[in-house]
Structure formats: structure tokens, C-alpha cells
């Protein structure tokens, strides 16, 4: 009985620690996240196809996140997922999922760790959307 009570107490302490860790993690994310910028901005989007040919699009937009900017130009289509829009088609070119093709977004060559819905844009940003084969 006493041991059970002791175990319950330990579990409760562990639960409190988990909650504290969750709060700290949220704070870490909140204060380091990229914030959207208001106002007009000019961005460049380069679409790179499987044969390595590419198209460059200059977009002037008031959008704060990449998705809206791309949709204003009707550049992307996709499926709604838990992480926002999962891009399946760019500039009329579909990624063949059966062939493990997907659209990889990079910003000035650097990997973007956010989805299009939550990728903020700033004036002068340059994005690349590349048809990539293999997960």
C-alpha cells in the first residue's frame, strides 16, 4: 500500500516534469519562430523540373506566408494535410507519388523546415521548388 502510494507520487512528479518540459518547449518554439512580415514584398520563386530545366517567377504580394503568395499566382495545387497544404502540382506539373516524386521547397538553397502554410516570406526572399525523386 505504502509502496503503491510512493509510486503514485513518483508518477505525479514525472507528470509535472513532462508538463514543465512541454511548456519550455512551446516557449522555445514561440520565441524562435520566424514571424511573418506585413506589407508588400517582392519574392522570387524558381520551379525546377525533373529534367533540371526551370522557370522563374517574380511575385509581388501582400501575403505573409508562402502558400498564399503561390496560390495568388495559381502556381501550386495539392492536398490538405495535418501539416497544411501538401503540394502535389507546381505550374501544372504533377509529382508522381508512385515514383516517389515530391516537391521540395528550399529558400536560397537552404532546407525549409516548415510547410508552405507556415513559411513566412519577406521582401527579397528567393525560394526554389524542386521536383525531387525518392523519399
Amino acid at each position: 500500500m505504502a509502496e503503491k502510494k510512493m509510486n503514485g507520487k513518483k508518477t505525479l512528479i514525472a507528470a509535472v516534469i513532462v508538463v514543465i518540459v512541454a511548456v519550455l518547449m512551446f516557449a522555445g518554439w514561440y520565441f524562435t519562430r520566424q514571424k511573418p512580415v506585413e506589407g508588400q514584398k517582392d519574392i522570387t520563386v524558381t520551379v525546377v523540373y525533373k529534367d533540371e530545366s526551370s522557370d522563374k517567377f517574380e511575385i509581388t504580394t501582400q501575403a505573409e506566408f508562402l502558400r498564399q503568395a503561390l496560390e495568388e499566382k495559381d502556381l501550386v495545387k495539392g492536398d490538405e494535410s495535418e501539416y497544411g497544404l501538401f503540394i502535389t502540382e507546381v505550374n501544372g506539373v504533377k509529382a508522381d507519388a508512385d515514383n516517389q516524386e515530391w516537391w521540395c521547397i528550399t529558400k536560397s538553397g537552404e532546407t525549409v523546415n516548415t510547410g508552405v502554410d507556415t513559411t513566412p516570406i519577406a521582401d527579397g526572399d528567393s525560394f526554389e521548388i524542386t521536383l525531387t525523386v525518392g523519399y
Binding site: 512541454a22 518547449m25 522555445g28 523546415n113
Partner: peptide, 9 residues
């Protein structure tokens, strides 16, 4: 990791 923290929570 940090970009995915909301999903982890």
C-alpha cells in the same frame, strides 16, 4: 526539431 514542436505537443 524546433519547427515541429507544436506538433510534438
Amino acid at each position: 526539431w524546433v519547427s515541429g514542436i507544436p506538433f510534438d505537443i
